[in-house]
Nucleic acid binder design. Structure first.
Lengths: 218, 218
DNA sequence: TAGATTGTTAATCGATTAACAATC
DNA sequence: TAGATTGTTAATCGATTAACAATC
């Protein structure tokens, strides 16, 4: 299915966005779309869409365009959304709680199997259909259930040691909400750093320089 | 202070990261750092750091490097972190609640002045030192207090109409946590789309293609 | 002064856009 | 068949890296 194993990061980052737009079109009952029309909706060039998709295969048809349902499924396959990667959430404070309840993990390739915290006031609390477990049993839990992903919603100062420990327990990917940068060039470890604080500062810059916004934005 | 008004997005996006690393170095009591050493810590090239900083001015000194405290302050100024942009949070569910309590708005140029929801069970609830207000009075509230930023933690289907309404009420920037893309080329409106779901899907792709990760990552 | 490291210009690399022949 | 639109190659644009003279 994959033409070329070495697809660039900018392309990968656009895939979820394509997926969202196609989902919406599908919901509206639209059957086909051309790269031109999709590009107009998404604010991209038609050329870019075709280039992006052709990293993975030729999903369109000359003179017709793309079948929306098919393309939606193809992109889902490329992203691997039907995976069932076992995930543990570390840190069930406000943010961890929101992450656990807000995201539809099952639709995005994950299965949240455990939530951990070290705060006695939080341990035992119910989040969705899960009970918050004591971080002390995390190691044991990992050895038993072998999760492949950890979601870090802990204070930044614990991120480094926690991540190292989790790697030693077989964790292969991190969804990192702490301030700390988990090294993204780790040997064979996948990392998504969220960095909400950075996003907020970027917004601050933009508002301060709002006069230049029009020219800057594509 | 600004040399060139047209600084590219990739540069801007790196500024908060520089700021974080410098904050940490400052905390550790380090006084000076060369672009070479900082680049090693951050996983960048020294060249890139110097290029980035020189978009805004020459903050270093030949033969010495950069004074950490000074550079930290300069970057804070460039980002405009001492701004006090008034912000309103729309949607006080799990995610909105976490966003309101988790981020240090004051350190990042913002002042959260109001939290709104339309759910009777949530209205009146206390979040930090604020009481959740009824969305019905949002318009009135905006006319009185003139917030410049809105944080959207509402269901995606309301994002479009809510954003349009807020623009008409004078909102100049959005921190958008919904699935909906707020058009980032709006006339003079600053937008940061967070899209946690996209990030999760990207992680899914990475884990599925973990064998190619080493070569791909810089 | 000599050594270090910047600021800045030039070279390279990669990503986006344009063009067009292939084909449904 | 004619028209539309893809897949793909070539051209352009922009961002990153390298190099080095300026200078602390």
């Amino acid at each position: 299915m994959k033409k070329n194993e070495q697809v660039s990061t900018p392309v990968i980052k656009r895939l979820p966005r394509y997926h969202r737009y196609l989902e919406e079109l599908k919901r509206q009952g639209v059957v086909r779309i051309s790269s031109k029309e999709l590009s107009a909706r998404m604010g991209l060039t038609a050329s870019q869409i075709r280039q992006d998709l052709n990293c993975f295969g030729g999903f369109g048809q000359q003179g017709y365009g793309y079948n929306i349902e098919q393309l939606y499924n193809e992109i889902g396959n490329i992203l691997g959304l039907s995976s069932k990667f076992k995930a543990v959430l570390i840190g069930a404070g406000n943010l961890g709680h929101a992450v656990a309840t807000h995201l539809r993990f099952e639709d995005r390739g994950f299965d949240l199997i455990g939530i951990f915290d070290n705060n006695p006031n939080v341990i035992g609390q119910q989040i969705g259909n899960k009970t918050v477990l004591d971080s002390d049993i995390l190691e044991e839990f990992c050895k038993e259930h072998n999760p492949s992903v950890a979601i870090l919603c802990i204070p930044s100062e614990f991120a480094d040691t926690t991540a190292k420990k989790l790697v030693s327990l077989g964790i292969k990917g991190f969804w990192n909400f702490t301030q700390y940068d988990i090294a993204t060039n780790y040997k064979g470890i996948a990392v998504e750093n969220v960095h909400l604080g950075d996003s907020l500062m970027t917004l601050c810059y933009q508002i301060n320089n709002i006069d230049n916004l029009d020219e800057e934005s594509k």
